[in-house]
Simulated scan of single mutants.
Amino acid sequence: MLIRTSLALVVAVAAALIGWRVLAPAEVSSTVAGPSPVAVTRSPGVTGRTNQAPLIVGDAVRVYASKRQTRADTPVDAKSVMTAIWSLRRWPQQLSGVVAVGDTVVSRWADGELIALSARTGKTVWRVSTGIGAPAFDGHRTGASTVWAPGDLHTGDGAVLVGGASRVNAYDAATGALRWSEPISCGDAFTTAGGQFVCTEQAFSLATGKAVTGWPAGPHTPLGCDVAASACGGLRDAAGQGWLVTGARPERSAVLDQQGSTVAAGRAIAPRPGAQVLGASQGRLVLLTDDRHLRIADAVTGAVSADFALAVDTEKLTWKPGLWQVTDHWVAIERLAADGPASPDKPGHYFTVDTVIIAAI
């Protein structure tokens, strides 16, 4: 009887130790072991498709988000997701958002940690505890909202801005030093190309966090933004009037009054019949046509330099765009089923398994 009791105790202790090793809080980081990734450029055209949305950084790496991990692969023109060259996993914490400033990738976690990694090596550059809790992971299957539209996480003027219920902190993207912290209660925030942090009703200086005057009445609708609702070139005010916000003061723009107008390459762009402006690349407009072609056109003359179908092999062109990213040389677009359910968690929401298409521009 004693032997059986002892064996049972040993088994119970072993099970507890195994459970602790599996479930105990843990952080695992792996960094680049081989050569540093290099930027890639290609002639315009589709290069691949992935099942997750990549944050393209420096035209050299693709950064992905999942519930408890951020990782990167390379090269950007790979036909599918490749083996990770670096990764950061934090159990049981959830990844809330990812942004990039230059070659620095900054991840925000639900426990308030802000961790900056080198995009090319995965090594930690700096790390701070913000004291501001972050939303849980909501990127669904592709992680698109986590890398392209993270909540309460923005960039501007070389800083990373972290928002909460009643406070906004700005950290230097290169060092992690706290630039400013202000008691700002903010909703639907974005940053501007002119150096402002804009909340529902008010605008603040990105340099100091102090309120700025002379802004049109909110709530504001941002226009012509980069990923993470950052570096927006324009907005519409509460009355629906358009403004360019590429400088220190808003500049009235009647062109931006029109639905479907936007800002690209520093210019107010009128609606384009049969096409949606996704952004700008080196002074060129990047447009998605109604028949799902990607068209590259001069921002001033409108001259088209490239036009190609956004499909791989025999794929149909019957999808609708979700979120996307435009860089100097690349575009990545999340494709949704044209008549699929609205919820990303329901079958049939996405166009296909490898639903993100990547193209050189």
Rank of each mutant, 00 (worst) to 15 (best):
D138W: 10
Y350A: 07
I358P: 00
A264V: 06
P44G: 02
D290R: 13
A116P: 02
D354Q: 15
I296Q: 12
I18E: 04
S205G: 06
L23S: 14
G164L: 09
I357P: 00
W215L: 07
V353K: 12
T104E: 02
V312W: 10
Y64Q: 00
A248K: 14
G218F: 05
S66I: 11
A100V: 03
V105C: 06
A134F: 07
G266F: 05
S145P: 01
S253H: 04
D237F: 00
C225R: 02
G340F: 12
G209K: 08
I56H: 02
A189L: 00
D328T: 13
H293I: 07
A239L: 12
V40W: 05
Q196M: 13
P25M: 04
D157G: 03
K316A: 15
I358R: 15
A24Y: 02
Y64P: 00
K210V: 00
T41F: 04
L153F: 14
A342K: 13
S6F: 15
H154A: 04
I358H: 04
V61K: 01
T124L: 13
L88D: 12
A119W: 03
A26L: 11
V263D: 01
L288M: 05
D172V: 08
S145C: 00
L288F: 03
D345Q: 13
G240V: 11
T155Y: 04
Y350R: 11
S129P: 02
G187W: 09
R141T: 13
A16C: 10
A177K: 14
A359P: 10
V227M: 05
G102C: 08
L153I: 12
V99Y: 03
F308A: 09
A100K: 01
T74F: 06
D313T: 13
L206I: 12
A144S: 15
V40A: 11
S80I: 08
D138T: 15
A270G: 01
R120C: 00
P344V: 09
V57M: 06
A239G: 12
C225N: 07
K320T: 15
A14Y: 04
S30T: 15
E113N: 13
Q52D: 08
D172E: 14
L323R: 15
W148K: 08
C225D: 06
T355R: 11
Q69K: 15
A78M: 06
A275K: 03
Q325D: 10
K79E: 11
A229W: 06
S36Q: 13
D152V: 09
L161A: 10
A203L: 12
V61S: 00
I357G: 03
G48K: 08
G195H: 10
T314W: 04
A360Y: 05
V98W: 05
A110S: 14
V22D: 06
A303S: 12
I269Y: 05
W324E: 01
D73H: 01
V263L: 06
G283S: 10
V11E: 02
R179D: 07
L153W: 13
A268C: 06
P44Q: 09
T142P: 07
G187L: 10
L17M: 13
L285M: 09
D298N: 14
V76L: 05
I56M: 01
L235F: 05
K316N: 08
T124W: 02
